[in-house]
């Protein structure tokens, strides 16, 4: 594993360049960063800034043109599709819009990986899926088809599907985009719950600051078996979440929420100004 001091990096990008075939310009231009185990990394940026591309690179769905990407200390660049399966076994991914399989029921979607790779007995399979659907508050949708679900319910099923095999890292690609603020907020609560109760490292790609700050400032505790949500309003106290800001394929900021507010970087300021009225000069 790559480590700095006493922390361990789950993901490490070093000078990564990537361009989609047919495009003249690179989507990512020399991006370098580290993500520590147990932390939450929020990747911010406008549409087309290369945020989602980072998640696809981490999963090895696409290969960089140059640079090194290490996941749990392993350079995934030279790995074949078969070897990448081992790397992906520790990662869960929540795709934009959920990407649920239309031909399968909700329970088959959530248990897809368990059916494919773990061969659990039917009874144990059903218990596990019921527990997962209970975690995201959709127990009664066990046999329903994804086409019967609303946008928010699809995302929640996608979260249950991503956590089914107990991954150490979950990647969220625009998990709240296109949802109303209340539904978006329930998805953010799920991310926080998964992070704090299951100890999962999270990477959240979004362009919605409100949701990013909700994830950064909330925490969850179990008190007498009951889940309690708390919110920290003093950003000076926040240590668990880091922010990355991308602009046109370049990383323009990496740091905590308090440093984000103090940043002199013009794009960061413009980004904050666009979404937080108090930042307007």
């Amino acid at each position: 594993m790559t480590g700095t001091g006493d922390s361990v990096n789950v993901i490490s990008f070093r000078d990564v360049y990537f361009g989609y075939p047919g495009n003249d310009d690179y989507t990512l231009k020399g991006v370098s960063f580290d993500i520590r185990a147990g932390s939450t990394e929020v990747i911010l940026g406008g549409s087309g800034s290369g945020k989602s591309t980072i998640l696809k690179l981490v999963l090895g769905l696409i290969k960089p043109n140059s640079g090194v990407i290490a996941v749990e200390g392993r350079d995934i660049g030279p790995l074949s599709e078969d070897d990448l399966m081992d790397v992906r076994a520790d990662i869960g991914m929540v795709f934009q819009e959920g990407a649920l399989f239309d031909s399968l029921s909700v329970s088959e979607n959530v248990g897809f990986r368990l059916r494919e790779h773990e061969g659990l007995p039917e009874k144990e399979f059903e218990e596990r899926i019921s527990r997962l659907l209970g975690f995201v508050g959709l127990s009664e949708f066990y046999d329903r088809s994804p086409s019967d679900l609303s946008g928010g319910q699809r995302r929640r099923v996608a979260v249950a599907r991503a956590m089914a095999h107990h991954p150490e890292l979950i990647l969220y690609d625009e998990p709240t985009t296109g949802l109303d603020p209340i539904t978006g907020s329930t998805i953010c609560d799920l991310i926080v719950k998964l992070r704090d109760l299951e100890g999962v490292t999270s990477v959240v790609v979004t362009h919605q600051l409100r949701d990013a700050f909700q994830v950064a400032q909330s925490f969850v505790m179990l008190v007498d078996g009951e889940i309690e949500y708390h919110r920290v309003d003093d950003v000076e106290l926040l240590y668990g979440t880091e922010f990355l800001v991308l602009n046109e394929g370049k990383l323009v900021f990496q740091g905590r929420q308090r440093d984000l507010f103090r940043s002199d970087e013009p794009y960061v300021h413009k980004f904050l100004e666009g979404q937080i009225p108090a930042f307007r000069r």
């Binding site: 999963l59 897809f112 494919e116």
Partner: peptide, 8 residues
């Protein structure tokens, strides 16, 4: 992409 991410 989801299929591939699940190792299938």
């Amino acid at each position: 992409d989801a299929l591939r991410s699940f190792g299938t």
